[in-house]
Design a protein around this nucleic acid. Structure first.
Lengths: 155, 155
DNA sequence: CACCAAAGTGTTATGATATAACAAAACATA
DNA sequence: TATGTTTTGTTATATCATAACACTTTGGTG
């Protein structure tokens, strides 16, 4: 789907993502606790990837600021569960927009507005596999993060 | 070229890389100073990507330990000049193995031995361009880092 | 229900990575 | 050698992430 229209109903994205996460957690026997839910909600509310300490700042609004561990633990859970991703090139985190399938995601990250789009590009995945295979390399994880200017910012 | 034979003459790699860097710097009117040279040498001497503070430790051997800025500045220069790369997924740095052309590099990084191979895979580059184009995204930088097990470690 | 084990949370402390700012030195060149 | 520019040295601080341990909640079992 790539970059969303800036005027879409984002509230629905958020509540949909939370609902999906709840279902997925239940299905896998995982505990989708209050903190984890809140962190995922914060991730989805943002239009761009958030640093762990940004998330902390936003948690703070509901009382006093928790220790960093709180956020990192929640993020670890969310990533384990396939509900969020880490963007290595930014030290930032983003809600997974396709938590249903076990996918290999790539990201387009806008240098101007900071927004990021998760894409699942089969040709990239395929090229990566083939390159690795021809080097005799056994793939475990893939980091593909493309920065540039998103369509919304090109005007 | 991918992963080198563990028993190759690495000293020659290092001196070759330094020579090339010197030539390239001269050609571009850049100053390949002592610190910059030393940092590049340290990068090349290592078989795996090094963190900035690892580099600091190794600089220390020639006297007392410089401040982190010293290394980060040298690394900035080397990356600007196309003589080194940063591996975002590791917060680590590595000498560029193809400093001649203006290339778009991808990396295969071994989780076991820590070594990293710079590859220039046209199919990956092409797939990235096409994916971006079809999303209306204007590409500036690409981070492609694949982790797994290298051929040397599969035995 | 009462208990226990496992999972999750709170908190303090610390480690690891990276940059800001400014003075001093080295260099290029006129 | 006088001049402006680049590079280095140094101090301080910002930013990102994890270790360790006590306490609480949860969910299952006798």
């Amino acid at each position: 789907m790539s970059f969303p229209n800036p005027r879409h109903d984002h509230g629905r994205c958020v509540s949909g993502a939370l609902k999906t996460a709840e279902n997925k957690s239940r299905a896998l026997g995982l505990r989708f606790t209050k903190t984890r839910r809140k962190v995922l909600e914060i991730l989805w509310q943002s239009h761009s990837p958030l640093g762990a300490y940004d998330i902390l700042d936003r948690l703070q609004e509901d009382g006093r600021r928790p220790a960093p561990m709180v956020v990192y633990r929640a993020l670890d859970f969310l990533m384990e569960a396939g509900l969020a991703h880490r963007l290595s090139s930014r030290n930032a985190f983003i809600g997974c927009s396709a938590p249903d399938d076990h996918h290999e995601a790539q990201f387009l990250i806008c240098d101007q507005c900071g927004s990021a789009a998760e894409v699942e590009a089969r040709p990239i995945a395929k090229a990566v596999e083939e390159t690795a295979a021809s080097a005799g390399f056994r793939v475990q994880h893939r980091v593909v993060e493309i920065t540039g200017i998103c369509p919304n910012c090109q005007n």
